[in-house]
Design a protein around this nucleic acid. Structure first.
Lengths: 99, 99
DNA sequence: AATTCATATGAAATAGAAATCATATGGGAT
DNA sequence: ATCCCATATGATTTCTATTTCATATGAATT
C-alpha cells in the first residue's frame, strides 16, 4: 500500500472548507465567486482550497469568459461520500466528536 | 451533509502513522508492542494514534492478559481503501505529490 | 491602452495536529 | 505487597496546514 498517496488523498478531504466546497458542488458546477457566496467564505480562501482539490483531481475546471467553473469528479467523490455516510450513521455518536 | 463528521472521518485517515497501523492490521489483529515493532514506531506514538482510530471506530480492542489486541473494522476500512486505490491509480501521478 | 471584474498566488501570521518525553495505570507473576 | 511487563495518558514542544492580506494575472469591455 502506497501510504503517502493514501494520506494525501484523505488529507485533501479532511478540511471543513474543502468539504463545504465539495458539498456545494454536488448540486452542479459553479464559479468561484458563486461558491464563495453560497458557502460564505472569502474568495482567496476558496481559491487556495480549490487548488488543493484540483491537484488531487477531485474537481475539474473549465474557463467561461473570465469566470472559472469548477465541477466535481463524481467518479471518486460520490462513492466515497456514500461509504463515509454509512460509517458515520452506523458508528458515530457524540463520542466520535469529543476531541 | 454533516461536514464536521465527514472531516473528522477523513482527518483520522490522513496521517502516515495511522495509515501504517491500518496497513499493518489488514493482515490480522495485533498487540500494541507487536505493531510498534512491525512499523518501527515508538510505543506512545502508536498508542496515541490507536486511540484516535478507536474513537472513530476504525478499529476495535480486546484485552488478552496484559496485552491489548487491536483489530480493523473491516466493514469500513476495506471498501474505503479500495475506492482510494482506484482513484490513485486513475488520477495520481507525480503532479499529485508536489506540495 | 486603460479600467473593471473574476480569480490566482505568495508571504506572513495563526491555528491545529502530531510527536515526544516523562510518568501513570493496570494486569499478572513472584 | 512488590516487581515487571504492556499499554495509556498528560503536558510540552515541534511541525505542518490553514487563513489572511496584499497584490498579481488575465480576460473582457470601453
Amino acid at each position: 500500500m502506497n501510504c503517502p498517496s493514501y494520506t494525501r488523498f484523505f488529507e485533501t478531504f479532511s478540511n471543513k472548507t474543502r468539504m463545504k466546497i465539495i458539498a456545494e458542488l454536488i448540486s452542479g458546477a459553479k464559479s468561484v465567486n458563486y461558491i464563495c457566496k453560497r458557502i460564505n467564505e472569502e474568495q482567496s480562501k476558496v481559491s487556495h482550497n480549490l487548488k488543493k482539490l484540483s491537484e488531487c483531481n477531485f474537481i475539474n475546471v473549465k474557463a467561461e469568459g473570465k469566470k472559472r467553473i469548477y465541477s466535481l469528479n463524481k467518479d471518486t467523490i460520490k462513492p466515497i461520500l456514500k461509504l463515509v455516510e454509512k460509517h458515520v450513521k452506523t458508528y458515530c455518536n457524540e463520542e466520535c466528536h469529543k476531541k
